[in-house]
């Protein structure tokens, strides 16, 4: 999923300060799962903002809407009837959702309420960690199912570096060394020999190397 974290309340208060009526948007997908911007977080933020303003004697009118998916125009369209009365939009979706709303409603100021972090998985309840860097040319099949690009601090394709210690990364003692994980998994799979193969310099074009990316599925797009 795409993970996110709510921005500090003080920053959000400043964003909406000029406005009296705002639309506060949640998204029912990734940000709901990582407890950053689902219906529940929308409720908490709405309540927080109202109190933050009411203690200064200002009444902030907030309409809360949580869309099924904020990165799809079909769902974003559902906002059209509510846009007229809103002076600004505060969105708790990831950066994709925020942009989709901004694209559809050209004349409405749209502010992000969360910082979009990474593509990750949940380790356990309340803990998410980065797993994929979206490089566009997946190597997991040869690295034992652990991504060196997303999970090695130096994105080494031929690790581990000299800073791997007791299975941890030199950058943070709490962080696993990705290459230790890769090695452990290769051993478990009986594929130690694979480690010996040098991975060539990576072609970054399938990633961000060639500018913003687009996928066109002719059969579906027609």
């Amino acid at each position: 999923m795409i993970t996110a974290e709510r921005k500090p309340l003080s920053e959000l208060v400043e964003c909406v300060r000029p406005y009296g009526r705002i639309l506060l948007l949640g998204c029912n997908e990734c940000v709901t799962v990582c407890a950053a911007g689902g219906r529940k977080e929308v409720g908490l933020l709405a309540s927080s903002l109202k109190m933050a303003f009411s203690k200064d004697g200002k009444n902030l009118d907030i309409k809360e809407i949580t869309l099924e998916r904020q990165c799809d125009p079909e769902y974003v369209e559902e906002l059209a009837p509510h846009m007229g009365e809103a002076e600004a939009v505060l969105s708790m979706a990831c950066g994709c959702g925020v942009q989709e709303v901004a694209r559809r409603f050209m004349d409405k100021p749209v502010f992000p309420a969360v910082n979009t972090k990474f593509m990750g998985a949940s380790e356990r309840q309340g803990i998410w960690s980065e797993r994929c860097a979206g490089c566009g040319d997946c190597v997991l099949g040869i690295t034992g199912g652990i991504c060196p690009i997303a999970r090695c601090s130096k994105q080494l394709m031929n690790g581990p570096c000299g800073g791997s210690s007791g299975g941890k990364c030199e950058v943070d003692a709490e962080m696993d060394c990705a290459w230790q994980l890769i090695w452990d998994r290769l051993k478990a799979l009986g594929l130690e020999k694979r480690y010996e193969e040098n991975m060539p310099a990576k072609d970054w074009r399938p990633g961000r190397g060639a500018g913003p990316r687009k996928i066109i599925r002719e059969d579906l797009a027609r």
Binding site: Q155, L156, M157, N158, G159, N198, P200, K202
Partner: peptide
């Protein structure tokens, strides 16, 4: 951090 290459890839280059 750039890390376009790692040290082994640099050697090769």
């Amino acid at each position: 951090g750039v890390y376009d290459l790692d040290s082994i890839q640099l050697v090769r280059m």
